[in-house]
Simulated assay, not measured.
Amino acid sequence: MPIRVTVWSENYHEPREPDVRRRYPDGIHGAIAAGLAERLGERVRVRTAVLADPEHGLSDKELADTDVLTWWGHMSHEDVADEVVARVRRRVLGGMGLLVLHSGHYSKIFRALMGTTCSLNWRDAGERELVWTVAPGHPIAAGVPHPLIIGEQETYGEPFGIPQPDELVFISSFSGGEVFRSGCCYRRGKGSVFYFSPGDQNYPVYHNPEVRRVLANAVLWAAPAGGVGEPLDNAHTPIRW
């Protein structure tokens, strides 16, 4: 059976900013979905969802049909309904994979799963980013060049307010001198979570074939081997912001 992937994005910038719309005419979610289909073919079944969809496109039924969820957000983190965040969290604890991308580090769902601020230092000067593999035997790093070169990108820097990753796959260095833990793996309940930082809306990062390779590898890694089961007993714990 193909891995069922839901590619989620808030879709805030694309309708409002012509430059972003030209860069991502099908939306950031569309570019990510196209990359997964290109890399993985029949191994995946990909759908997209955005914030404006009913229940943000993440109803119980839609999540039940999802093995791996990818999440991109930036401007509308607080507009995501708490009940949807709790629903996604239950699914992750029950075994659904989650890929959190770029500024999704500050999404409600990532903060809920990490239990920390998930804050970081940043600036946007269009600098070169080098993504260095520090776990060359990890499945997400398979076939990824060392380093992966991104010509222009928003700069992220430490300290990054996350728990110590269960597995650190990538670190990035920027031409301005910053370094950053850019590829982090976690286990939460029965689910696998991967955070990958490259991917700002102002640069065509999700068209980069090697970034697409990382995301495709991450989907294969995060997909539950035995399907998504029932959530853990503590999955219904209220989330407070």
Rank of each mutant, 00 (worst) to 15 (best):
M114Y: 02
L113E: 00
G35Q: 13
W8H: 09
G177R: 02
L40H: 09
N202C: 11
N202L: 12
V131S: 15
G94H: 01
I109P: 02
H56K: 05
S103N: 11
L63S: 03
Y106P: 01
R213S: 11
R181C: 07
P209G: 10
N121Q: 05
S76E: 13
E17T: 15
L98F: 00
E10L: 02
P18K: 11
I150D: 10
A125P: 00
H77Q: 09
I150T: 10
E38D: 12
T155L: 09
S107P: 05
E78T: 12
S9W: 08
L120A: 05
Q153I: 11
C118L: 07
P238L: 12
Q153L: 14
R91A: 13
M1K: 14
T6C: 08
Q153M: 15
V131G: 05
D124P: 05
R45G: 11
V211K: 01
A34V: 05
Y12L: 00
E167D: 14
F196S: 05
V228M: 04
G137M: 09
G30C: 11
S175F: 14
R4G: 03
T133A: 09
Y156W: 15
I3M: 06
I162L: 03
A81W: 07
R16K: 15
K108Q: 07
E129R: 13
V50G: 07
V80A: 01
V44Q: 01
E55K: 07
L101I: 03
E129C: 13
R181E: 14
H102G: 04
Y156I: 08
E10S: 14
E42M: 10
P145Q: 11
W72I: 01
D53R: 01
D82N: 13
W221L: 10
H13S: 15
D166T: 03
G191W: 00
E14N: 11
M1G: 12
G41E: 04
F170K: 09
I3W: 09
S173K: 10
G104H: 00
V179T: 15
L40T: 10
T155W: 02
K61L: 06
V205I: 15
L101A: 04
D233G: 03
Q153A: 15
N202V: 05
L98M: 04
R21T: 01
I162G: 00
L113F: 02
R128E: 15
F196G: 01
A86S: 14
P238K: 13
G151R: 15
E14D: 12
E38Y: 01
D82A: 14
H29F: 09
